[in-house]
Nucleic acid binder design. Structure first.
Lengths: 197, 197
DNA sequence: GAAAAAAAATGAACTAGTTTAAGACTTTTA
DNA sequence: TAAAAGTCTTAAACTAGTTCATTTTTTTTC
């Protein structure tokens, strides 16, 4: 039995934490929707009520909010193998404050709210999968929220490069600045300084 | 059937997300350990391998890391009704980088690593409980990590007061500075400025 | 309840990061 | 493939936040 590449990718991701029978895999895959997003297109915009949670099988997207001055505060870059979306809006049906924009042509698998809840009824061990997935994300966000408030911008940049060496080369300096939490001008200074060292 | 106050508190917390039978409640409570921590005593110190995850039934604790200069970077204040610990160390058995210190005489219920895993075998619906608990924590940490890098210290202070009005009065200004991510001196200036407004 | 220790306030000199502006370089689009 | 739009660099003037030092106030301890 062969799966297409995107399906292999998502099943491998899930089988890090739980085992699935062939039948369960089929059932699971049947609950997903394939989505393509062209470069510069939006997967989500502020005030949307988001209907899906997403798994990226190809490409790169940035998740961000806009402040009054129009500056982008980027909360994550999502590439192949990452999960993304706005969980708050997904769960509560409240409109989102986030934008999700493809920075490359991207392909995703989405699970709708209905199917997300159905999934737990049909294959209860997905509770375990999500329990562990959220637990791990939580660990890294706790760290990020601390570092954001205690490290200098230069230290955060060096850490980002170490933690996500593959992502650095796929995004613009401007977007990286939006993630690190500084202006593009200061990002430019930091990079030239760090490269000189 | 009556439960003691601390047991009522933790059961109510759990029953926000799942229903439990009397038997399940008894089973669950039997897996917990009661812990008391005197003011200024440590529940956890860097390099410990943490054996428990905690639920606070009384008191207040601060969770923090120390930097090279000895400054405390506080990641949370845990009061009655909150869950705390170091999930990374709890899960992986790696030594923690965190300190958890009681800022008031505190009482907690702890679940050991063994019992945590046993719990999922004995009462599988706890997977759901933790799935939702982690999901909600994740939502608020994502927000905090963004705000930490995009709001000014004054904005973060105002937001903290709005979000945790009861906690503000229980902690020192110095500790609040460690949470906001600034020096105690600048915290003092912000507070006097905001009060003047 | 006096002495000691810790927290809070204030101010002056400093540094990390912002703003504004302008020119060079790169990518996108027609 | 030329023009337009966006990105990157540099620099000068500025502001948010730090550091260090001192005094006052509050809390802890014996």
């Amino acid at each position: 039995m062969y799966y297409k590449e995107s399906h292999t990718l998502i099943l491998n991701n899930i089988e890090r934490f739980i085992d699935l029978t062939k039948l369960e895999k089929q059932k699971y895959l049947s609950l997903l929707t394939e989505i393509k997003v062209k470069k510069k297109a939006f997967l989500m915009q502020a005030n949307d009520v988001t209907k899906y949670e997403y798994f990226i099988t190809k490409g790169c997207l940035k998740v961000y909010t806009l402040d009054e001055d129009g500056a982008q505060h980027i909360s994550m870059f999502a590439v192949e193998g990452y999960w993304t979306g706005d969980m708050a809006s997904f769960m509560t049906k409240e409109p989102t404050r986030y934008f999700i924009k493809a920075t490359e042509h991207s392909e995703l698998l989405g699970i709708s709210r209905t199917n997300y809840h159905l999934l737990f009824q049909e294959i209860p061990k997905f509770e375990k999968f999500y329990r562990i997935l959220y637990q791990r994300s939580l660990i890294s966000y706790i760290q990020r929220s601390n570092h954001g408030m205690s490290l200098t911008a230069e230290e955060r940049y060096i850490e980002f490069k170490k933690k996500y060496p593959k992502i650095v080369n796929r995004i613009t300096q401007k977007d990286l600045a939006g993630y690190i939490g500084i202006t593009p001008e200061f990002m430019s200074k930091i990079i030239s300084k760090v490269n000189r060292m």
